[in-house]
Each structure stands twice: as structure tokens, then as C-alpha cells.
Nucleic acid binder design. Sequence first.
RNA 1: GGGCGCUUAGCUCAGUUGGUAGAGCGUCUCCCUUACAAGGAGAGGGUCGGGGGUUCGAGUCCCUCAGCGCCCACCA
Length: 894
Amino acid sequence: MANSPSSALSKAYEPKEVESRIYSFWENNRLFKPEANLNAQKRFSLVIPPPNVTGVLHMGHALDSTIQDILVRWHRMLGDKTLWMPGMDHAGIATQNVVERNLREQGKSREDLGREAFINLVWEWANARKADIAGQFKRLGISPDWERQRFTLDEGLSKAVRHAFVHLYKKGLIEQGTYIVNWCPRCVSAISDIETDYVDEESYLWEISYPLTDDSGALVVATTRPETMYGDVAVAVNPEDTRYAKFIGKKVRLPLTERELPVIADSYVDMTFGTGALKITPAHDPNDFKIGREHGLEPVWILDERGRIKPEAFIPEEIRGLDRKEARLRTEALLEQQGYLVRKREHSHRVGHCQRCQTVIEPLLSKQWFVKTKPLADRCIQSLKAGEIKFIPERWTKDYLRWLTDIQDWCISRQLWWGHQIPAWHCAQCRGVTVELEDPDTCEHCGSTDIQQDTDVLDTWFSSGLWPFSTMGWPDENAEDYKNFYPTDVLVTGFDIIFFWVARMTMFGLELTGKSPFHTVYIHGLIRDEKGQKMSKSKGNTVDPVELIDEVGCDGFRFGLTSLITYGGQDIKLAKDKIDQGRLFANKLWNASRFVLMNIAPADSDGVDDQPIDTANLSLMDRWILSRYNTAVRQANQLLTDYKFGELADTLYEFVWNGFCDWYVEYAKKQLQEPERRANTQRILLHVLDGILRLLHPIMPYITEEIFQKLPHRKEQSIMIARYPQADENLIDPGISERVDYILETVRAIRNIRQQYTVPHTQPINVSIITTEPMERDAIVTARGILEHFVKLGELNVLDVMDVQSEHNAVNVVGHSRIMVPLGGLIDIEQELERVRKKMTVLLKEQEQLYKMMSNFEFLERAPQAVVEKNKARLQEVNKQVKALEEQLEGLAR
RNA sequence: GGGCGCUUAGCUCAGUUGGUAGAGCGUCUCCCUUACAAGGAGAGGGUCGGGGGUUCGAGUCCCUCAGCGCCCACCA
């Protein structure tokens, strides 16, 4: 074969080679920048949910990013000035944990290094990770403006954090206070309520006897954590509880110690639970803390920050210094030995675990910084009710609202080193706190220079909460990006971080910028494995999207993934089938494009010209494909507007494969041979292919770019900045569709008979079509060429009525027509009887239903006219079909 | 204890103003026809979890039962 012209496509699509080449092309030409769209009127912006630097790319990111990329590429093609802001999150606890673990393997601790050296080490590690993660993201083919990439701990964002903290502090919305927090003894830090995962665990309920000091008996308390008893400061009973009324005001002795505790009354105590007597441990239990405070009881700390029993003198010597788990066992043993343990019974309850390291958390009374969330949340609720923010799917609104309504104060201090150090200075002289935008030298209360910055850092989510505007240059309200792109349009994320992140962003956004940071929150489902299990590293069922991409190509992967998305935001079971379907679709697109390019090749002396399609000279099939194409265009735009990505994939798949490839491309083979049709057919092929590439580009960026660049007459440098097709309504012609669809149905009916009777497809087949329907008669006459192209026809007769009754016909019905194929001796009477009877059964059932409907007065009365008409027409059709089959059966039976 | 989601063809799932069920894969039959065998053509396959209700009409709305899954909640 001669050398291929330069525009020809290679025999097979090579994803790997194309992907790396095209991505470089995009980056080198800076096409991800919003400035790539000059003269844009409208704008569109969104921020990527910043992945943790600790993470590796997983399927969730792939889904999340693909959805965003579809929106971004679509808007860019609509001509909007489009910004997708990328970046990553420093992930305080998670990152520190990883680096500390690495240190531990070398036998070192962070304390060995000291704060500064340790932080430097974490930076080093984080920077390496950032590069890795960006590299993985690029493999997804996504198009954020990498030149703008941000990090939650970079200079600009740190400035934003500082501003936010100072603002909230001065407004009284941040406070330092002593409260019970969830304490992780392994991370040695407080964590927030939502960072605590509760797990049902089988444990015990211990009943312990506390003797009254006046020897009048004993109170038996029930507890799930006997080791905390040393921190008891009282025993509480319900004031209504007649069993214990007489003990109120008396004292009990805390077993194993010499301490005496008051018996108090509090209605919080549930008389029906346990023994109805509750030990009060304010320093180590949230409810006890509240009760203790109300009764003016001083808390007693007995657990240290690593979850060990403190070496307090009143605690039995053998217990001191023990880990809480060990302490529980030894305490139980001691209680039993000394006769205080009344009963130990099985009891299952919920135990809090640290989300980052799964360690059992201890409620611990300590001094922490809090955001008073109530006023912030109220503002979010108002904003929601004012319609300033909308969730898709809508049902998540309820969760968001409920959480905001029942919101608890947010503990934002963490006893870590990696993160934004809290910008508060404590005075050693007057104990006052100084919080300013600039680092202070002196205490603002007493002027002392003996001040020290708080050693805690902020919860990671504090900085993530500022993300949509901190990345845009806030607090500088004149920053270009802030002016141009804030507020953003849409936020795309999973439901698991609605509370962690979405709500924090709206709280901060409304408070600090006065605006909701986005108007739409698109919540997608979780990606699960083939069995429907949540993917997790511990289960070992994670799928690496990059590996899948290596296997099937990025476009196939993205298309498959997109087709799995549902509007209801259902969790997605990762089906390899669907991913493969995407791969096959890419292949189909590639080959269809090859066909088109081969047949319009410039090397061909009469290759496609650059004239517009001659709409005055269109064949039926031309008009049909243009109608279908424009219908698909209309649907695609609508589906994108409605965030219906799965349907978008299905719609385009159907059009490209079953519309364009199966019928038009096949028919074009004929038209290309016809001198008077050739040029226009080439133009139409090119036009529709070009449109298909554009329509698919948001989902399949690489292959569409690769083919696009081979198209003749293209004006744009890249498909990325080519216009997304808009429907030409004039070319949508239902009448043409109806006629051609009828012909294609007829093609199928004839093929069906050919297959049934195994007539070789090389053998011409004679067909008689009996119909009185004008549209059908007309279609057969005018579209005879179509029929002939798709089935090897012999004689074709179009008749008003049956002229002969022949038992040697095979029959099928289409619309009002009966399609008869005389088969002479070939026909197997029994087989044909069987086949026709089967069709009859189905038809009769439908006929009965339709008759029922038509004889139902109320249906005719109340159903919409269009529905009545539609069914009426269908009944007529069915009647004709039934009649045709009846006659056929008679003929066969003769 | 509240709240939410799911139950549709052998498998995985679509199906939002209620109009009489679809796709992919798999299965069966035929075909290497010059874009594609990673393909083409044809076929079979479902009383839409059970029950009840509203309606001319329900996979779609309401109630109820069953199974599965998730989220939230301070009962020691």
C-alpha cells in the first residue's frame, strides 16, 4: 500500500502514546488557563476538592475529577472564561502520622528532631507527594489550571487562615475554653466530633458497690469503663428514684481509695439503665462533665495525654502509670478481690475511634480553641432557605440542614506540629491572650514582652473551609482571581464530606466574604468494588485508576465511568464490563473516524471541499442523520445543564454507534459512489464527525483531540477551545425520522426473515409489502435505495391488498405494513406457523389492552388528548398487524 | 432511637412532570462484507421484592411488610 496521507489515522488507537503527547500539547499551549478563551462574556469557575498530600489517587478522585473536568471542558467550549482551581491539602494529623511513622522506623521521634527540623522534614515529604499526586491527576486527562495550583499551607493560604482566625476571634466567634474533647492518646491530640467514628463493640457493664460512709449500706453503680472510677467525684441518682432517695446528700467511699464522694440527684440519670446509679467522672466523660459543672464539682484528672493512669497518690500504687486497657483489667481484679464487684455482664455499646488511626478515643477535659458555630450555621440556614445554594441530588439538603441545626461547637486546636500554628500569644505575666494580624512583641493587655505563641495548630478543615476564596487571593478583595472568579459556580464532591467540608466552606464563606462560595453542590456516590463493598486499603480491594487507565486507555476509562453515574447519586459498583464498554466505544469512534478521513482524504484529488453542506440537495438518509445529530446535540446540552452525566454518555453512545455508524456511515458507502452525492456526503460525514468529537470531548478528551487535529478545514488550534455544538432546530425533522425509521424497521423485518430461513445474504430476496398507509407507501418508493442498500433485494412489490394467498410466504409486520417474503419450497410450514403464532400472542395481548382503553369512557374523558390519539393510532396499527398475521396463519393452514 | 437509600431481563444497573419497561455484559444463530471480529446481522429473556390504596391508567405517588446497605444520636 502507498504511503498514507498525513491526515490518515493509524490502524489502531494507541492511548498511551496519544495521551502523553496530547497532554503536553495542552500544557505547552496553556489551554487550561481561563485566559485561553479570549473575549469571553460569561465565566465559570470551580475549585477542586484538595486531596490530602498523604493520599494516592483512588477511584473516588477519578470520578470526582472526571465529573468536574466534563463541566469545565464543556463550559470552556461554550466560550466561557473558565477556571478550575487545583491544589492539595496539608492534612495535618494524617501527614504528621505518616512522617512520624517513618521516623519511628529509624528509631526516632519528632521530639528528637525538635519542632523546626520536624516541620522541615514534613515539608520535604509533602512536596514530593504533591508532585506525585499531580502526576497521577494528569493521567486522568483533567484540565485544571496547574499554574495556579495551591496548597493549604502555602504563604497565601496561611495569610487567609490568619485573617479568618483574627476576624472570628475579634468577633467573639473563636474562644479558648475548657471542655471535654475527643482525645486520641496515640495522636496525642484533640480531634473534633466528626473526626470520631463510633463502632459497636461487645464489652461489659460492670456493677461496682460503693459503700456509704455511715455504714448504712452501699450504692451499686454501673459503668462501662471501670478504670475511670479513680476520677469519680460523685455518684448521681435520679431524684424521682424511690430506691435511692434516702441516700441523696450522704457520702460513699470510692472503693480501692480513701476518697469520699457525695451522692447527688440529677434528672439526667436514667432509672431504668444499669443500676440507676451513675458514677460521675467529669474529667473523662462528656455527660459527667456537664453534671459535674452543674453541681459545682471539681474534676479529677486521672488519665494523661497518652491514656495512662496518672501517678496520683490516692490511686492504688499498682494501678499508677498503667495504660488504660491494662488499668481496666487490674482494677477489675482488685475490685473482685476486695468484694466490690457485684456483677459483670455482657453489654454492647458504641466506642469512639480516631478516624485517622483507629485508636479508641478518650473523652478528656482540656483547654482547647473552639469556633462558636451556631451563629455561622444560622447564616447558612438562611442562605439555604433563600435559595442561594442548591444540592444535587436534592435529598442531601436535608442532611446538610439537620447538621447545621444541631451543630456543636467546633474544636479547632490540635496538639500537633504540622499545620497552621494558632496565631494567639499567651502572656506569662497577666495570662492575657493577644491575637493580631501581625505577630505581636508585647501583650496587648499588660504590655509585657514575656509572651509566647500558642503551640497548638489548627484543624486541617479550618484551612480547607476557606478554600474557594483563599485560593482566589482572599483576603485581598482586589485580587484578580477573587474579583473574576469568586464566588465559584459549583462544588463537586462525595457525601462523606458534606459536614467536614461543604458546611464549613459555606459557614466561612458567608461570614468572611458575605457570599455563598458556590450556588450548586453536586454530590456523587461512592465507588465500591464489584461486590458492592466499600473500597479500603485495609480490605485490599482498592482499584488503582492509573492501572485501569494503563489497561483500557484514559478515554475509555472516563467514558465507562461516566456511563455509571446516575442522577440520583447512587453508589457506583465498579463494573469492569462498563469500563470495557468505554474502551470498545473509543475503538469504534476511532474506526468510524478512520473511515471518514479515508473517504475525504485531501490526497484524494476530489477530496472534500470546504463548501458548506448543500441543504437543498439532501438525500433522505442525509436529512435523517442531520435530524438525529441535531437532536443529540440538543439532548447533550440539556443533559449537561442538568448534571445528568450517565444519560449523557448513553445518549452519545447510542447516537454515535447505532445512529451514525450503523446506518449513516454504512449508507454513505453507497452515496460516496454516486457522483452527484459524493461531495455533499463527504461534507455531511465531516460535519457530523466533527460534531461528534466536540460533543464527546468533555468525556473523552484525548481521542477527540487527536482526531480533531486531523480534520481538514478545522479552524481552531485545539478542540478544547472549539465551540460546543448547538442544535440547528431547522434540521430536526420528525417527519423524516418517522419515514426513515419505518424503512429501517422494514430492513430489520426482512433481515429477520432471511436469518430465520437462513437465506444466504448473497442471494437476492424478493419482497412484497402490503400497505395502504400513504406515508409508508411513499417511503418505500422514495427510499427504495435505502432498502436495497441494506438488504440484497430481488423483486420489490408494493401492493394495496393481498393479491395472492400463498402458503409459501414468510411474513413480518411493521407499522401498517405486512412485509412478505415468498420463499417457495424453502418455507417450513411448521416453523413459520410457530413463529407467526408467537408474534400473534404478543400482539393480541397488546390489542386487548388497547381495546380496553378505548372502550373506557373515563380514559377517553380524562386522559390527555395526545395520549388518547397515540393509543388510537397504535390500535389501528395493531389491528392491521393482527389481521395480516391472521391471514398468514390461514394461508399456512391451507 | 431517628433519618435516608436500595430491591426492575441470567449478571451489573438506567428509567424526576404517573401513559403501559430499556442499556451494557452474558446466552443462542449466522457472517472474517475493502472503518472496526476490540466487528456486523438476527433472536430469546422481566406479572418492575410481597400486600394494600389513590387514579381512566402506577416501575413511577401514598400506606404497610420483608430483606440489604448507609448516615446521625451523650444513655453510664
